[in-house]
Design a protein around this nucleic acid. Structure first.
Lengths: 221, 221
DNA sequence: TTGGCTGTACATCGAAGGTTGCAGCCTGCG
DNA sequence: CGCAGGCTGCAACCTTCGATGTACAGCCAA
């Protein structure tokens, strides 16, 4: 079961080096080489390789855009390769559907492992990228950013309802209270959290993941 | 420069196997072993190892909670190890501050590489976990969920301002128009996106990542 | 018991938000 | 040209929101 690879890299010397590394593996087959993004896309669609090794910086069409087109077509797994460990590149590439993101300072062994990994359908990231991705992921820590802890249970319920986009009237019906009471709670919530409108409260609730489960109102009730 | 390691794993046989693998590396030093979460935390705080190898399922205090305490104290890098590749474990561990997450079906070599990686301060994830994490990260793809495309340029600006939590008055000043005009735009936006209040618009803008850059108002202007 | 404190509840009123109608302004087209 | 259609702009009017004052029940300590 050989792994068919397309190498997209504009610098001929680097491209040659990559191809050489890959050709050394008996079960790898470099089926094509592209010197720019446009070429990478058309070759990927034509050859349907298992993996596209994609440089970020390339003429005509950059690697991120090329990645987007290739993954949108489901043509191949894309392993992005770059010299610079910039968040912008990483985020762009991953959002574009890349299966992996490696830096060019890697060992040949790591590259080979990466190819195998993405060919399997798994993900492969450079360690430094992994750490930052974890941090990004971990950020939405469901907790009480100082203020939330000061809310009473009832206030928290109202807060969640605001986060769901409900009006005071809807909240009142949902939580079985008068609209006037809802307003009191909203007012207290805004004061405690130092916000100036329910819109800001809703945004905060979104950030915190505090949202009332969507239960459509019963028109008859 | 030896790497000091604490192994936290309740099953004695597994723990012994892990320790054996680690001791085979000349620059690794297993400085302690814990059979439950409580012990892991106290040993980590006492010994200050470079890396804690942490099992998820453990008596008294589970691995995720133990990880949270250890990382909160900044006592060590934690590399979480588990048999089951469950999202719940992964998310929990990463939110708890783990630097890595590996599955027990790994090769000894991978474990060793993982230890070195997290000891450096980088991140290490099992390939299948990496792929899912990338997907999670990529989800907030900036696109136009049907409705956004129907907004005019000006309306999009107002929409972004709503997403930032601004009032009509603030939006009017920021975008240089009369408040009455802002209201018109808001009204059109709500109609086009089939929303019933600016709160819902703000929530949608959050989801879409459409938010006006935060530029505090100039009081003098 | 009395008093203080907190959480919940309601009514009133000024402020902000949202709807509607309309007027310039472009661009494209008969 | 004359006109239609879309974008942007404004004002008048009604609705919803939010601040404020007040009330009352539960709880704990003096």
């Amino acid at each position: 079961m050989t792994i068919r690879i397309l190498v997209a890299e504009d610098q001929a010397a680097v491209r040659a080096a990559l191809v050489m590394i890959l050709r050394a593996e008996p079960d790898f087959s470099v089926v094509g080489e592209a010197a720019d993004g446009e070429q990478a896309v058309s070759l990927a669609l034509e050859l349907r390789p298992d993996v596209v090794l994609m440089d970020v910086q390339m003429p005509r069409l950059d690697g991120v855009a090329a990645t987007r087109r290739i993954t949108a077509a489901g043509a191949a797994q894309v392993l992005v390769l770059t010299t610079f460990d910039l968040d912008e590149y990483v985020h762009g590439a991953l959002r574009a559907g890349a299966a992996g993101f490696l830096l060019k300072d890697l060992e040949a062994e790591t590259l080979i492992e990466g190819i195998r990994t993405v060919a399997r359908g798994d993900g492969m990231l450079a360690p430094s990228v992994t750490r930052r991705l974890i941090s990004t992921f971990a950020r939405p820590e469901r907790g009480d950013p100082a203020g939330l802890a000061t809310l009473t249970q009832r206030e928290r319920e109202v807060f969640a309802a605001i986060g769901a986009g409900l009006s005071n009237g809807q909240i009142a019906r949902r939580l079985a209270m008068a609209e006037a009471t809802t307003k009191t709670h909203v007012s207290r919530i805004l004061a405690k959290l130092e916000l100036r409108s329910r819109v800001q409260a809703a945004i905060l609730a979104q950030d915190l993941g505090v949202v009332l489960p969507a239960v459509p109102e019963r028109p008859g009730a």
